[in-house]
Nucleic acid binder design. Structure first.
Lengths: 189, 189
DNA sequence: ACAGCGGGTGAGTGATCAATCACACATATC
DNA sequence: GATATGTGTGATTGATCACTCACCCGCTGT
C-alpha cells in the first residue's frame, strides 16, 4: 500500500538519485555497482540505465544533489542566525554542517568524490559544488577570506575525523585532531 | 647490466611496494588491479600474489610506506629548522610537506586511503599513519595542540586543492580556497 | 479491436579481475 | 645424480560488472 500513485520517470529519478547517494556513500564510485543502486531504489538495473545512461551520470547526479543539500543547509543556518559578527555566522554555519553530516552519508560521498576526481565529470561536479559552498559561506557570512578558508579547512579535517574513525580512538593524538569537532555517534538518545 | 646482483624476494618486495604506491595513487584501491601493479613493477601478477597474499595487503604496505616517507620528511625539516618559535617550526614542516607532495603521489594515496578506510585494514593503517604524523608534528615542533590541529586541517585543505584541481581554476572562489597553499605545477624549470 | 507508447524487466554478453595452480629454471646440498 | 628450495611465469577459474536487447504490461486514442 505504500505506492499511492502512478510513478512516472520524473518521479523515479529523484528516488534513484537518493538511492545512488546512499549507496555510493558506502562503497565509493569504483566500489559500488549500478545493481546495488538499483536494488536500493527497488527497481531493475536495466531501468536505471535507461534513465542514467552511464554509471558516471548516476554518480554525478548524486554528488550534485548532495551539494544542493549542503548549500541549502548552510544558507538556512546563516539566514536563521541572529549573530552580527561574521565569524559568529560562520560558526553557526559550521554547527549546521555538523548536524547535517551526522548520518555520514553526505560526508562520505564528498570524500569518495575527491578520490574519484580524476574522472573528468566527477572532478567537474566536485568543483561546481565547492564553488557554491565557498561563495555561499563567503557571501552569507560576510567574513573575510581567511576566515572562510579556515572554515573550509576545518571542514576537511572533520571529514578526516569521520572517515578514519578518529573520533572513536581513545588516545592523545586522536583527541588532538578531533578536538572541538562535532561528530556523529549515531547516538543513544 | 643494470642488474648488479641476484634479486631475492627481499629485494623485490620494496620494488613492488614502490610500484604499488605509484599505481594505487592513480587509480585508488578499488580502481586499480594487481595486474596493473605487477606491470609497473615489471613482474607477473602471480608473483605479486605470492609475496602479498591479497590486494589489501599490497595497498596497506604501500600506504604504510608512504607515511614513513612523510614522517621522515617532517622530522628532517624540524631538525634542520633553525627556528626557535614552535609555530615557525611547524611552518618549516608545512613547507617540507608541500615540497614532498609536489609529485602528488603521496597525497593522492592518502586521499584514496581515506576513501577506502571502510576496509578494516586500510582504516587501521590510515590511523597508524595519522598517529605518527600527529605525534611527530607535535613533539618536534613543541607547538600547542591548537596549532598542530590547524597544521593538519590546512594539510587536508591542501589535499582538496590538489585532488579537485582547484589550483588551476581561475576564479575568486578557487583563489580563496588555495590562497597560501603551495601546490605542484610539475613545473617548467 | 488494435496500434502506439511510456514504464519496466529477465536474461544475457563480453570484458575484467582477484586469486590459484601446475609447472619451469636455477642453485645448493648431500 | 638426486633431492630440495627459492624465484618466477602462463594459463585458468569462478565471480562480478557495465551495459544491451528482446520483450512484456497496461494505458490511451481511434
Amino acid at each position: 500500500m505504500p505506492t499511492k500513485s502512478l510513478s512516472t520517470s520524473e518521479r523515479r529519478i529523484p528516488a534513484i538519485v537518493d538511492a545512488a547517494r546512499d549507496t555510493f556513500a558506502v562503497g565509493g564510485y569504483a566500489g559500488t555497482t549500478v545493481a546495488d543502486v538499483a536494488k536500493a531504489a527497488g527497481i531493475s538495473s536495466a531501468y536505471v540505465f535507461k534513465l542514467f545512461p552511464t554509471k558516471q551520470d548516476l554518480f554525478v547526479a548524486a554528488l550534485d544533489r548532495s551539494f544542493v543539500e549542503i548549500v541549502e543547509t548552510l544558507t538556512r543556518a546563516a539566514d536563521a542566525s541572529s549573530a552580527t559578527k561574521p565569524d559568529d555566522v560562520l560558526d553557526a554555519m559550521a554547527a549546521a554542517y555538523a548536524g547535517l553530516i551526522a548520518d555520514r552519508t553526505l560526508l562520505l560521498l564528498q570524500v569518495h568524490a575527491q578520490s574519484s576526481a580524476g574522472v573528468t565529470e566527477v572532478g567537474a561536479a566536485l568543483r561546481r559544488g565547492l564553488e557554491k559552498v565557498t561563495t555561499t559561506a563567503s557571501q552569507k557570512s560576510k567574513a573575510d577570506d581567511d576566515a572562510v578558508q579556515r572554515f573550509l579547512a576545518f571542514g576537511q579535517l572533520c571529514h578526516l575525523v569521520v572517515t578514519a574513525g578518529i573520533g572513536d580512538v581513545d588516545a592523545d593524538w586522536a583527541r588532538l585532531i578531533a578536538r572541538g569537532i562535532r561528530h556523529p555517534d549515531t547516538a543513544t538518545p
